[in-house]
């Protein structure tokens, strides 16, 4: 009987600990994606201002160099849709922001900033495009800073809360 109780208690504690770990990790994932998106927009700026690459080419180059699956999938899809559909870019951009990036632990604010990029992307001259991309990148850098602070603040906390809740449940159920 005692051994069954011990196994049950260990199961509860480890489950809660893993849950805490998962929540803590999501803060790190958001930071990684935002950092990657900032990096992606730096490349986009270069592609637009110096290489004069069309957006589909630029997006596919960004996808190849992306470090997170979120950014890689998003830009690869943008490149694919631009090459294969007649839909206006802003529609494609909004749909993919929702469908691809919405799947990851980004806040509504983050998605709104990324979605805003699609509104004027490709529609003006080089100078205006660079200004537009820079503004969005700066907004993302702000979100990245906030995400890093949150990550530092809550990552350890979530791990500890997970473990503590697990232990509490185990004791209560004993």
């Amino acid at each position: 009987m005692f051994s069954y109780k011990l196994v049950g208690a260990l199961f509860i504690v480890s489950s809660m600990f893993l849950l805490g770990q998962k929540v803590a990790a999501s803060f790190g994932v958001r930071v990684a994606i935002l950092r990657d998106l900032v990096f992606a927009l730096q490349i986009l700026e270069t592609e637009v201002s110096f290489a004069l690459s069309p957006l589909a080419t630029a997006a596919s180059r960004i996808a190849r160099g992306a470090r997170t699956p979120a950014t890689k999938t998003f830009f690869a899809q943008v490149a694919f849709e631009l090459a294969n559909t007649d839909q206006p870019l802003h529609q494609v951009w909004f749909q993919l922001t929702k469908a691809v990036l919405g799947f990851y632990p980004l806040t509504d604010g983050d998605l709104e900033v990324i979605g805003r990029l699609g509104l004027h992307l490709g529609l003006t001259n080089r100078q205006d495009q660079v200004v537009h991309i820079t503004r969005i990148r700066m907004a993302l850098e702000g979100a990245l800073q906030e995400a890093q602070e949150q990550s530092q603040k809550y990552q350890g906390l979530c791990q500890k809360v997970g473990l503590t809740l697990g232990l509490t449940f185990a004791l209560l159920c004993w």
């Binding site: 637009v48 690459s53 957006l55 589909a56 206006p88 529609l123 003006t124 495009q129």
Partner: peptide
Amino acid sequence: VTVQLISKSSLYV
């Protein structure tokens, strides 16, 4: 839509 198609959504090019 036509402008976007002919410019491949990249008027700056």
